[in-house]
Design a protein around this nucleic acid. Structure first.
Lengths: 240, 240
DNA sequence: AGAGGCCTTGCGGTTTCCCGCAAAAGAGAT
DNA sequence: ATCTCTTTTGCGGGAAACCGCAAGGCCTCT
């Protein structure tokens, strides 16, 4: 059995290496990559069906790497090992995970035992393992009152990138008014206006405020926006 | 001699501990804090004039902790040890460092020797040590054509928080038109409109686009915005 | 003092955003 | 089928953002 470790921090990488050796005695060799780009490349080597992946790396995010890995070989088992449980990450992952894949999401704050348990469950038993803190975010997204719809999220991202209502409408195949309606809903859900009383009616530009709130609430994060930006550039050139 | 280590990642903390012991044989004891809050408290202990500080911690940023530490005892020597060299960090630090303080900024990608050298230079010799990569950003800020003025930066932050032009004007003690002028300058410097040709004239909301670009260029980061948000809330309640 | 720069401010006009109102178009339940 | 509930779309208007133009203030240099 071969395991690929994708992690840019050398200290964390060596810690992971020890944990993998301890948890999985059957491992023959451990391959390491220091960013998503390299990880994608090494994942193409034969017999590399088990990956431990850090999110938040410099050159290429773990989510982007996982996207291409799963696109090429959907049966690959990936354990995401991250500092944070931002909704942005959770949403990004749950959008790309294929039905046939086993995967996991373990926080770096977890104990070594939890990590080893997850390694065995995912790579040996093909189970799904999600830290509770992460799972709660996943769960909240399902409820309509909490969390954002996929559609709302898409509009939010476009607004955060700095597109006008009209351009968002073209991109999402909606009318101008519908985009504004979606935004209106976002302003409510993100609690753009200060609670209850309106001491400061004209103090907030709701559009920009919504983006700020989404960043505060970890619904958006800069890495996600960076990825969305490259897709936007492609769209601006190609389609329109 | 006593050294305070403020670092939320246990792996990095133990690495730091070893480096401090190796570089400074005269160290009697090493105190550790796992976030900025705890760091501020422990820094008040007597004889704690040397601090190694991570930026980017969960509960309270390293910059915030450094601000209060230096406000209370400006002679404290602080070595910032960070993953990134974002302009947002560099700007934040250079705003709060007192004249009489020795300090340093070393990236986590630096070798162990570089780290040890910096520890000795700052804590024993009271020198200033800045990694080259960080220093280049500091330098670019001085030039007027590159980088943003303090005034422009303040307006940018307010806009990113979602304030209207009018509200920014009140906050910065400017006229409405001046705020719009500053924003206009920002739109140029941040290259809000796609280069040269204007294929898409009405596609961008420049205000939101400017924030997105600033995040991409690491001129703003979410932690900084979070701090600015608390200051904004205080201002909204108190002054106005 | 005068000239040239830069920053600030005001005026006026166009565009975009924001939103109430209401009609049309599904989706689902009884 | 009809009756709801939700979503989408259009219309219209008030507020904010965006920007060219120009007048005044403050600085430096000669």
């Amino acid at each position: 059995m071969r395991v690929l470790v994708v992690e840019d921090d050398p200290l964390h990488a060596s810690y992971l290496r020890e944990a993998v050796r301890g948890a999985l005695p059957g491992v023959i060799d451990i391959v390491e990559a220091r960013d998503g780009m390299e990880g994608e490349r090494l994942a193409r080597e034969p017999g590399c069906a088990s990956v431990v992946m850090d999110l938040q790396m410099s050159r290429r995010t773990g989510i982007e790497a996982a996207r291409t890995i799963w696109a090429e070989r959907p049966a690959t088992r990936i354990l995401f090992w991250s500092n944070y449980s931002d909704e942005a990450y959770v949403r990004g992952i749950s959008r790309i995970v294929p039905k046939e894949a086993a995967y996991g999401y373990v926080l770096k704050t977890a104990s070594e035992d939890r990590l080893k348990l997850a390694l065995r469950a995912i790579f040996l038993e093909a189970q799904i393992v999600i830290d509770r803190e992460v799972h709660q975010i996943q769960h909240a997204r399902g409820r309509p009152e909490r969390g954002l719809t996929e559609a709302e999220h898409a509009v939010l991202v476009d607004a955060a990138l700095g597109l006008t209502d009209r351009c968002i409408a073209r991109r999402q195949h909606l009318s101008l008014r519908s985009v504004q309606n979606r935004l209106r809903g976002l302003y409510d859900k993100l609690e753009v206006l200060p609670e209850g009383n309106d001491l400061a009616p004209g103090d907030f530009n709701q559009r920009s405020r919504a983006v700020a709130r989404a960043l505060q609430k970890r619904i958006l994060n800069p890495q996600e926006l960076e990825y969305a930006e490259t897709k936007l550039q492609a769209w601006l050139r190609g389609d329109r």
